[in-house]
Every structure is written in C-alpha cells, then in structure tokens.
Design a protein around this nucleic acid. Structure first.
Lengths: 276, 276
DNA sequence: GCTTGACTTTGACCCTACGTCAAACCTGTA
DNA sequence: TACAGGTTTGACGTAGGGTCAAAGTCAAGC
C-alpha cells in the first residue's frame, strides 16, 4: 500500500486530484486508516485510475466516468456517448479554427494600419422585421444621400413615434445595370397595412426577412469614412471564412434630424453572411 | 436611454451578462437611477459592448479587455497579447484534433471487438532512473521468460529491500541480428556504484534516461496476452499520431516471487514516444 | 525515547463567466 | 387603480481542481 503522495507520483496526478476523486466516490483508496484518516492505495488501483484519466482525456466528465468503470453501461451506450463526444470535439475544432482566423486577421490589421482599428465586427442574428419603405435606384451611395435625407424627413413627419422605429437603408447591387437598389424607410413597432405618400415619396409596407448570422459593425458618421467601415467589414468577412448572403442594411440607431445630423449619427451596418 | 432588457435585446446578450459587466466595471450603464437602482443604457454604449464581445471572441479574458478599451495599452502590447492568444488557439486546435483521434480510435476499437477493451493507454513523463541490470540477447520474448525469472530471483536475493525498487525489463530490437536485446534488473532507490554477480548473472549499474512523453499501459499477467497488450498500445500510438522513440520498458509493479507469480503480476509497459 | 522534517488530514476560499432561482420592487398601459 | 411584465439584489451552482492554513502523523536518526 502506498500513501497518497507516492501513489500520486507513480500515476503522475496531484494529491489534490486523488482526494477529490475519493470525495466524489470515483476512486476510493483501498484502505483508509480510521484513526488518522490516512489514505492508502494499492497498486492494483492504478488500472482504474488510468482508465479514469484515459476517459477524461476523451472529454468525458467525471460523473459520466464512474458508471462506465462500474460496468453499469453497455458498450452500445458507450459508443453513443463517444459519438456525441466526437461531434463535440469536431465542433470545438471548428470554433478554434475560426477563433484563430479572427486573431490572425486582427494581428494583420494592426500590422497594416499600425493601431487598433476602432471597428469591431460582431455577429448576431436578426429577427424578421416589418418596415415601411420607399424604393429607388441610384448610381452610388453619394447620390443616395439626399434621397435618404428626404425619406427620413418624410417618414419622420408621416409616422407617429409610437409606430416608427429606426431609419433603415437596405442596399442591393443591381447586377444588370451596375446601379444600387435602395430601400429606405423606418422599422415598424406596430405593423401598418397601407401605403402612404409624403413629400412626393411613396412608402409601402415590406418585411425584411430574418437572418441567421449577420456580421455587424457600429460606426459614427455616414459620409466620410463609409468606405473604411465597409472595407473593414468586408475584410473581416473574407478573413473569417464567411460569404455575403444578402443585401446589406444600415440601421440608424439614433433619430437623425436633418442632413447635418448624419455626420454624428450612430449607424449599424449589417451584412447577412453564411459560412463559406 | 434603454432599460437593461431592451439594450440586451439590441446587442443580443443576456441581462445577466450586462449586470455582470456592470459589477466588474467593464461596462457601466450610462445612468443608474439612484432611487430604484434601474440601469439605463445609451445607444452610444453599443460600440463599447461590441468591442468587448469582439475581444472576448478572440479568447481574451474579461479583466484583460478593460485596459484595452480604456486605451491603457499600446498597440504593440495588444499585438503581443494576440500573438499569445494565437499560440493558445493553435495549441487548443492541436489538442482538439488529438482528442478527436483518441475518440475515433476508441469507437473503432468498440466496433472491432464489440466491447470495452480493458486496456487504457495513458501518457506520462518518466524521470531519469538508476537501475542495476544484466544484459542479454535473445530470439524473442518467449526465450527471455526464464532469463527474467532467474534475474528476478538473483536480484531479489542480492539486493536489500531498502535498495531495490521494482523489477524492470528493457527490450530493444537489434536491427542487425533481428534479435532482442534485454536489459533485466531492478530500479534502485539508493544508487549503487559497483557491479555484482549472483547465480551466474552479472549486474551492472546503468541509468535509464528520462523520457518526456511515454505511452503506458498496465496489464496483469505476463505471458498469454502479451501480444494483445502490445498490440493495443501499438495501435494507440499509431492512431494518436505518435511514433515510438526508444526502447520499451516493462515495470513489475508488484514484487514477483518466482515464475508462477508472473501470471498474476501487475506490469506497466512504457513506450517512449514523440509526436510524429 | 526524543527530535525533526517530511507527509497527511480537513476545511475553507478561489478560479471563469455567467445561469438560475426567489422575494421584493418598479413601470407603463388599460 | 390594477395588473402584467420588467427589474433589483442576493444567493447558490457550475468543473475540476489550486492554494493556502492549522493541526495531526510517520519514519529515520540519535
């Protein structure tokens, strides 16, 4: 019989670990001196400890291991558990690889621009969202600016605050004409069934589909650095193994009061993505 | 200003998380009503929360994130931290892949032999170990059996219990002669400098080198299933991406009293390995 | 038999990043 | 004003031990 320290040295585990396994009933010492409480382990207990360590290494939790060793579980059930662990391990590897790509792209970003970007891309899911919006086709975002301002003002005036949520701009590349299809409007807190017209613009109810995974970024100011923000999110999407899977959305997180407010506005850009 | 639930919904985090971040000072609400304790968040706090989530996703711990956001850390230091995280992530992936191989080989084992093996391979490190041993060359392990028995008895008689540890057999393939070089002896608790002879066998002091990583297995009985145990450990080494890196060792964990005891003896087989 | 140093015991608190209650309190709408 | 639903603090739990501290034990040397 060995005292706990010797047994721990033989098996290369900590004494704390052995005491813990005793405590949870996973590996009881062969004998415990009733006077002193000293734990004495027989070398014959080494196989059981090794079995514990081997199964722990497979990712099983300690309370799952006990029934296995006491043979209270068939090999079919064990196979099932291992298949589950296999799936978990594969998932963990995928997440790890994704994290590694995140880190590498972040390091590359520092090396390129010498500092911390200020843009932080976050993935989230988007629920289905009813909006009231007006559609237009423009050459580029520059041209769309006044249109957004006009639509913002018109919608602001035409919708009561209890109905209207945030200003939103959905941009879709039109592959035929090399132009931009814009959908400009307000998210709706309460659904509206009818079309309405204000200041020469026609607003119709639509429904933005839910998105499982969207890469999003929050930035301040619309015009001068739009490029930078879109560039950052594009780089991120590519570097992290995603592909764009739908039209981008810009949500104005604060009410914007006329064109001068656009520069200070807080805008969330959302890009629906799928793993590529 | 949003109440905690709304803000949580916008950012897709739990309210518990926001309260926790408040508690640890990572993200304080813009205003806390001193009367009611209600937390009110400004939309302007969303970028900070997003930054937190993005950095957390890279594997940084929360207490590392706070100084980053408060710009108390240069981009050079951040780069260093990210390089560290990169190494951690790579390591985690390697461990995950290894675990996956372990699991797969275990499933395959169940499918092959329909049950739980009874052999559990565990890796450990071996310290440098002085021994007193006699060397011989034999055709195979069968032929070595009586030799081991003789050496065990001779050593047992010639060494005092306070000097002698366990019986050990080191087996090395001799590539020239296709025979087996055996080193048979006892581990030494206290070093001995001299050679001694007993029952016609010459025992010399040697030193078994330390081994960083050894794949080990504990089995009972030497003869009948030697093949099975060696086979199991060999399969394991191959399946888990290791390669054998030195002569195997067999440690008799219990004192073995004459040849009949060999069948009941508890033996640990150790194979030095390196990642292949 | 005594001393000494190494070992062991129990108990307690600590770690990450929150999840999950419970009891009491607050807010906004009908 | 009633009520439903949101919010507060506080406490306890998680997995697998690490890291003390105070007190008791063991073995060896003298």
């Amino acid at each position: 019989m060995f005292r706990i320290g010797e047994f721990a040295q033989i098996a290369q585990v900590s004494t704390r670990q052995l005491r813990f396994y005793d405590q949870i009933g996973l590996l009881r010492p062969g004998r415990t001196d009733p006077q002193t409480g000293y734990r004495y382990y027989a070398i014959r207990q080494l196989p059981r400890l090794n079995a514990i360590l081997a199964l722990k290494d497979l990712g099983l939790m300690l309370d799952q291991i006990a029934p296995l060793l006491d043979e209270a579980i068939s090999s079919k059930e064990l196979r099932g558990m291992l298949l589950l662990k296999q799936a978990e391990a594969e998932q963990a590897i995928r997440i790890g690889e994704q994290r590694l790509r995140h880190i590498e792209s972040r390091i590359a970003q520092i090396d390129r621009q010498g500092g911390i970007s200020g843009y932080d891309v976050v993935t989230k899911s988007l629920p289905s969202q009813p909006i009231l919006a007006t559609r237009h086709t423009v050459a580029d975002l520059e041209e769309g600016g006044p249109l957004v301002a006009a639509a913002a003002a018109a919608g602001h005036a035409a919708l009561r605050p209890s109905q209207r949520g945030n200003l939103i701009v959905v941009a879709r590349n039109n592959p035929d004409s090399d132009r931009l299809d814009l959908t400009i409007g307000y998210t709706l807190i309460r659904s509206i069934g009818r079309t309405l017209t204000a200041e020469g613009l026609t607003f119709s109810p639509e429904n933005l589909p839910a998105v499982d995974t969207a890469a999003t970024i929050v930035r301040q100011g619309t015009n001068p650095e739009s490029h930078a923000a879109f560039g950052a999110i594009g780089t991120w999407i590519e570097a992290n193994g995603y592909a764009v899977a739908g039209p981008s959305r810009e949500i104005f997180l604060e009410p914007v009061l006329g064109p001068p407010g656009f520069d200070k506005a807080l805008v969330e850009i959302q890009f629906p993505v799928t793993p590529a």
